[in-house]
Design a protein around this nucleic acid. Structure first.
Length: 658
DNA sequence: AAGGGCGACTCAGAAAATTAGTG
DNA sequence: TCACTAATTTTCTGAGTCGCCCT
């Protein structure tokens, strides 16, 4: 922290505070950053929900920005100076934003989301510029109008080995048919191109690959320019002023036109998602503030509204799913932070009455009333397996299910034993596949099993198991037990509760030597939660080969250790021999491999191997599990922060950035 | 007056971008 | 130290949930 910049008082203040906190490992306050920040220190071992702990929950996100870089400033090479300065602009603003303590600021009046709101609307991509590369039809190049070419280019950009085209099960055909339907309309009836099968887009694909290559090969100077342009855009349009403080906007760039990439077997995948113009966008801003200026030359916004009961800044209608899309504040904004906090408060409230809730559905598992019995059984599944509630879906969407929409075909009962296979596609068409030992969960599992078995009997494969239960009625019932309780709260509650239970005790963790070992312990708990929530990721080809490479490296290291061990033995022998003749010719053996040296090297190998083994095991276990989702959405940060404090782990090791 | 539909919000994994690690 | 790669973080936008309004 030796640089002495004098032009940025705000960013410097934060910078120092943050760096200092890092250095001390514990949250401490530097004299300069004082003010009300002291509350942050209070977040502590018990999990009560005081304001001080929200601050901790927020603070974990204030990682040291602007690390490094200061060194460059001192050497006076003119090009080198510009880069760090320019890069800092966005960071400077965001540190300023981070200094705002939203957890100490008053809430807006009941029913209102804000009192004043001012922002810059959205930004738009430039209109399509034709490249002139032809599509081959039956081997013959066909010239296209710019719009026809634009659509062809969308298709050419779809990777052959990507999830849209390289999937068995008919997705590829749906994608191509939907694209062709739309493209064909644009080409017109009398167009030379009459069938999709004879089209060859590969010249355009190659052209796109070339562009990508050029982009990747850009010089440092070119990259700096690109970065500056992006920063300019971010600074011009990426922030809003909500109730008189600055907030980061999440997605202020209009989605570019493309082909709809529905997940799984989506009936609309491949449909053209149209370009959206400024006049199709509605703006929501405070009436007392100037509305945003549309920066597109000669264009204007479709509508300007002043609705202070909602949080969106801009909205537009999307043509493929006929849904509304919104521009909202970023995930780390005060608005989202407060809402996140409420979510975890609700989960903690559920913790307080979970006995009562469980007793309610346990009792009803045996009810004579069919509706009550089904309701209780769905509740058992939601609470035990962390299933989503599963609302009804239209024909225009992929066929995925949740608890209420489970069908007979998703269960497989075996003649022997109590295990049941449950297999279905859930949200995002992610496979849920588990063999479930109902009785193994709790004393009511057996009853749940009997119920499901009975509810499946005399039904067709494609019929719903819980045909009487709908999310609305289930939620209404839950709300009658605890105000505001809905099915999704159980996922939050069970995830956070699981984390709490899985995190090893502080006494145990504190003995671990390295932070790395402690982090592994945390990730272990995180993984169990991710598995509970069925958060998956597909193993990319690159990840798979990376894993192989690492296994190989481990093997190599082991061999090296063996070699080192041999050398050690050799050295010992030599030394012994040397000692014998030492008196006579001591000086000649001065360069003999030192026994201690070799022994130290063996220790290093051993360490290395141990680290590699842990690394590899960790990666192998994590390759199909996505830890990020649960960490970002389900784990109460107060639990993580408290654990970090008890175990002497710096919180920024767990949470990144702003 | 209830239930269906839709508006608004959270949650989700893939892909792109950035940063860290390594030889 | 530099260039390449691997790991991590951010961005992107599709897919859910849920409350409320309207018929």
């Amino acid at each position: 922290m030796s640089d002495s910049s004098d032009d940025l008082p705000l960013s410097r203040l934060n910078h120092q505070t943050v760096v200092r906190n890092r250095a001390e490992g514990v949250v401490q306050i530097s004299d300069k950053g004082k003010g009300t920040r002291k509350k942050m220190r209070r977040a502590s071992c018990h999990d009560s929900g005081s304001d001080g702990e929200i601050s901790a929950m927020k603070r974990k996100k204030m990682k040291s920005a602007g690390n490094l870089r200061s060194g460059h400033n001192e050497s006076a090479g003119n090009k080198k100076v510009i880069k760090p300065k320019e890069l800092m602009r966005v960071q400077r603003v965001e540190q300023g934003i981070a200094a705002f303590e939203w957890w100490n600021s008053p809430d807006p009046p009941e029913g209102k989301a804000w009192q004043t709101l001012e922002h810059c609307g959205m930004t738009f991509e430039p209109q399509y510029k034709p490249h002139g590369v032809a599509v081959l039809y039956d081997g013959v190049p066909i010239s296209l109008t710019p719009y026809q070419e634009e659509l062809a280019t969308f298709y050419a950009a779809m990777p052959e080995d990507g999830p849209q085209l390289n999937v068995s099960g008919g997705q590829r055909e749906i994608f191509q048919r939907n694209f062709w339907d739309d493209w064909h309309k644009v080409l017109g009836k009398s167009h030379a191109i009459k069938s999709f099968d004879k089209c060859d887009f590969s010249d355009i694909s190659k052209h796109l690959d070339r562009l990508k290559f050029v982009k990747r090969a850009a010089s440092d100077a070119e990259k700096v320019v690109a970065r500056e342009l992006r920063d300019d855009c971010q600074l011009r349009s990426g922030y809003a002023i909500l109730d008189d403080h600055l907030e980061k906007v999440g997605n202020f760039r209009m989605e570019p036109p493309s082909l709809f990439r529905g997940r799984g077997k989506h009936p609309k995948t491949g449909v053209v998602k149209l370009r959206v113009e400024p006049d199709q966008v509605s703006i929501n801003c405070g009436a007392s503030r100037p509305p945003p200026i549309c920066l597109e030359l000669g264009r204007s916004w479709g509508e300007i509204k002043h609705d202070d009961t909602v949080t969106w800044l801009s909205t537009w209608h999307e043509n493929v799913m006929q849904s509304n899309k919104y521009v909202m504040l970023a995930a780390n904004s005060s608005l989202k932070g407060k809402s996140d906090f409420k979510k975890f408060q609700k989960a903690m409230q559920l913790k307080g009455c979970i006995e009562r809730v469980r007793h309610d559905y346990h009792k009803n598992l045996k009810s004579k009333d069919r509706h009550l019995k089904q309701q209780a059984t769905t509740m058992w599944l939601i609470d035990t397996l962390a299933l989503r509630v599963g609302g009804e879906k239209s024909e225009e969407e992929a066929d995925t299910v949740g608890c209420c929409s489970l069908r007979v075909e998703h269960f497989t009962f075996h003649k022997t034993g109590k295990d049941v296979d449950l297999e279905f596609l859930g949200k995002d068409s992610i496979l849920f596949k588990q063999s479930i030992d109902f009785a193994g969960f709790d004393e009511h599992g057996q009853q749940a099993y009997d119920n499901i078995r009975e509810m499946c009997r005399s039904k067709k494969k494609n019929e719903q198991v819980f045909e009487l239960i709908e999310p609305t009625s289930l939620n209404a019932h839950l709300s009658s037990i605890m105000p505001g309780l809905t099915a999704k709260v159980f996922r939050t509650y069970n995830a956070s509760e699981t984390l709490q239970n899985q995190l090893p005790d502080a006494e145990h963790v504190i003995e671990m030597r390295s932070i790395g070992d402690k982090l592994i312990a945390y990730n272990e708990a995180n993984r169990i939660v991710a598995i509970l929530c069925n958060h998956q990721r597909t193993v990319s080809a690159a990840a798979a080969t990376g894993l192989e490479a690492q296994a190989e490296k481990l093997e190599q290291t082991q061999e090296q250790k063996i070699a080192a061990t041999a050398a050690y033995e050799a050295a010992t022998i030599k030394k012994r021999e040397a000692n014998k003749s030492k008196q006579a010719e001591a000086h000649r053996f001065s360069k003999l491999p030192d026994e201690k040296d070799v022994s130290r090297r063996i220790d290093i190998w051993t360490e290395k191997i141990k680290k590699l083994e842990i690394d590899l095991r960790n990666k192998e276990e994590n390759k199909e599990v996505s830890l990020g989702t649960s960490k970002a959405n389900y784990l109460d940060p107060r639990i993580s922060v408290a654990w970090c404090k008890r175990c002497d782990v710096p919180i920024e090791k767990l949470f990144s950035r702003p």
